[in-house]
Every structure is written in structure tokens, then in C-alpha cells.
Amino acid sequence: MLKEISLADVRGLVGTETGLSDWIVVDQTMIDAFADATHDHQFIHTDPVRAAESPFGGTIAHGFLTLSLLSTMNYNCLPKVREQTMGINYGFDAVRFAAPVKAGARIRGRFVLAEARFRGAGMLMTTYEVTIEIENERKPALTARWTTIIQFDPKDRPEDV
């Protein structure tokens, strides 16, 4: 995978897989910390004894915890745009939590650049088809369309756009 690209190169990557992150272990400590931060202490996340009796057979990560890990996956594997001065989350479309992430599981993100378009003098809007895979599982934990904005100095805008 590419480590760094220029603004002029981004549109040429549309339709290609541009990143595959390292595996991340989602352990009970991480799940508990997320529960504390969000005040979501539902037993399927935080009570291993009670959750063992659920259809999941143990605790599972919050769907929003799984979604939030896309940020670290992004930084881990997507090529950096040389001219970027700042990145901004714009939003998600069609987020689906397809399978639970059991405590102790390893997950990783797969990113396909679906769209890249310049907006205004100093913004590039990118949309990724993202999938969070669970190691040794057929179904992904999550799929979504994630749109971000790359800000850059207008003087760095490619001439052909």
C-alpha cells in the first residue's frame, strides 16, 4: 500500500483498495473503558458471567466502539496526502453492524476509495467503502460509507481540477 500521495494522485485511486489496517485486539478492558465513556453498561458488554448465557456466549463490543476504531485504522493504513493541512470527518452513510465483535477478537479495516471530488478552493471530499473484518469470521463486523474532507492550502490545488 502507498504511504504517501499527492492531491493530484487521489482521483486516480478511485475504485481501488487504498488501505488494509493492522489487526486490533478488542479486549474486555477496551470494552469497559468505552462503556465508562459512553455510560452504556448493558450487561452484554460489561458482565462476562451474565453475557455467557446470552446468544453471544460472552461479552461483545459496542457497535459504536467498533465504528470509532475506524479512526485509528485510517491513520494506520491510508496513504497520507502530502498537501493536507487538516482532516475532518464529514459523516457516514449506510452504517451496518453485521456481526458482533466478541471480547478478545481481532479486527481490521479495509478501505476502498469510492469517490474523490474537489470542493471549494481548498477542500477534497473523499468517500470510502469501509469494512471492518473479524479475524476467522465470514461476516464483517461493520460496513459503511465514510466521507471525510481533506483541507489544503488553495495554492496546492492541482491545476487540472
Rank of each mutant, 00 (worst) to 15 (best):
Y90M: 04
Q84I: 06
G91M: 06
V81G: 11
S71P: 12
I88F: 14
A103P: 05
L70V: 11
A103H: 03
A103W: 03
R96N: 11
K102R: 13
A99W: 07
T72E: 10
N74T: 14
N76M: 08
L70K: 05
A105N: 02
Y90P: 04
Q84M: 14
G104L: 04
M86F: 08
P100N: 06
I88E: 02
C77F: 03
C77Y: 02
T85L: 08
E83M: 11
S71E: 13
C77V: 04
Y75M: 15
P100V: 11
Q84Y: 05
A99Y: 04
T72Q: 14
N76V: 11
E83C: 09
R96F: 00
D93M: 08
Q84S: 13
L78Q: 03
V101H: 00
Q84L: 06
F92L: 11
D93E: 14
L70H: 06
F97S: 08
V81T: 05
A103Q: 02
N74D: 14
A103S: 15
A105Y: 08
V81I: 14
N76Y: 12
G104Y: 07
N89A: 13
Y75D: 15
N76L: 01
P79R: 10
D93I: 07
Y90A: 09
A98R: 15
F97L: 08
V101K: 06
E83K: 01
A94N: 15
P79C: 03
R106D: 09
R96P: 00
E83V: 04
Y90I: 01
P79V: 10
N89H: 11
G104K: 04
L70P: 05
A99E: 00
Y75P: 07
R82V: 12
N89Y: 11
N89Q: 12
L78H: 10
M73Y: 03
R82F: 09
N74A: 15
G91P: 10
M73V: 06
T72P: 08
R82I: 03
R106H: 07
L70R: 08
A99Q: 09
K80S: 04
I88Q: 11
R106G: 01
L70T: 00
A103I: 02
N74Y: 14
F92N: 00
P79S: 06
K102Y: 07
V101N: 09
L70C: 08
K80Q: 12
V101G: 00
R96M: 10
V101L: 11
Y75H: 15
F92Q: 01
A94P: 05
A99N: 07
G87C: 00
N89C: 04
R106L: 00
G104C: 11
K102D: 01
A105V: 01
V81K: 00
T72Y: 07
T85R: 12
Y75R: 15
R96S: 12
D93F: 05
N76H: 13
R82E: 12
E83R: 11
K102A: 12
V95E: 10
G104D: 09
Y75I: 14
T72H: 12
Y75K: 14
G87Y: 07
